[in-house]
């Protein structure tokens, strides 16, 4: 009992870390966290049929993110083997104009050599994200009780992710 809430906390932070992951190679373990056949994934009230489709979309079409956990509560529902978690957090996006692969929308400069056109930085420098303002986030997640014992395999039965507030000075449109 002592470490139960710690375990949930750790798992949610792990989920956030996966969402913030830039490298698609690292995401296979995240996919394994989802129950493969019947898990329900809803993002901003848009459903995804498969965890893989969601992760692929997130990876391909959403820029790098940074999630912060600000609120967590959960109930173990007796007799069902499941736990329902209510999570609050905030998330910000890389507004540098580059996607997760580091590609930006700049058209190649005709005949020019210096820089990639994205600023006066050393060409070899690894671009750093330019974090925008924070969005508010509410996440409901239903987990198999095995998660309380530290088992993260196929534990996510449902994942309902909603951005609940948005700053009007962000470049991102949601």
């Amino acid at each position: 009992m002592n470490s139960q809430s710690q375990t949930v906390d750790t798992f949610i932070k792990k989920v956030f870390a996966f969402l913030d992951e830039k490298d698609s190679q690292q995401l296979a373990p995240f996919l394994q966290c989802f129950e493969p056949t019947s898990s329900k994934i809803i993002v901003n009230a848009n459903p995804f049929a498969q965890p893989a489709v969601f992760l692929e979309t997130w990876q391909r079409a959403v820029v790098q993110t940074q999630h912060v956990l600000t609120g967590l509560d959960y109930h173990v529902i007796p007799g069902t083997g499941t736990t329902v978690c209510s999570v609050n957090g905030k998330v910000r996006f890389d507004e540098s104009g580059r996607d997760k692969q580091g590609q930006d929308a700049t058209a190649p400069e005709l005949g020019a050599v210096a820089g990639a056109g994205a600023g006066p930085r050393a060409p070899a420098a690894k671009p750093r994200p330019l974090w925008g303002p924070y969005f508010g986030l509410s996440l409901q997640i239903i987990l198999d009780d095995r998660v309380l014992n530290g088992d993260h395999n196929c534990v996510i039965y449902s994942f309902n992710y909603t951005m609940v507030y948005k700053p009007d000075d962000s470049l991102m449109s949601v």
């Binding site: 848009n46 959403v62 507004e95 104009g97 580059r98 991102m172 449109s173 949601v174």
Partner: peptide, 9 residues
Amino acid sequence: VFSIPMKLQ
């Protein structure tokens, strides 16, 4: 780059 495909509903 500046939008996310899951539009808020």
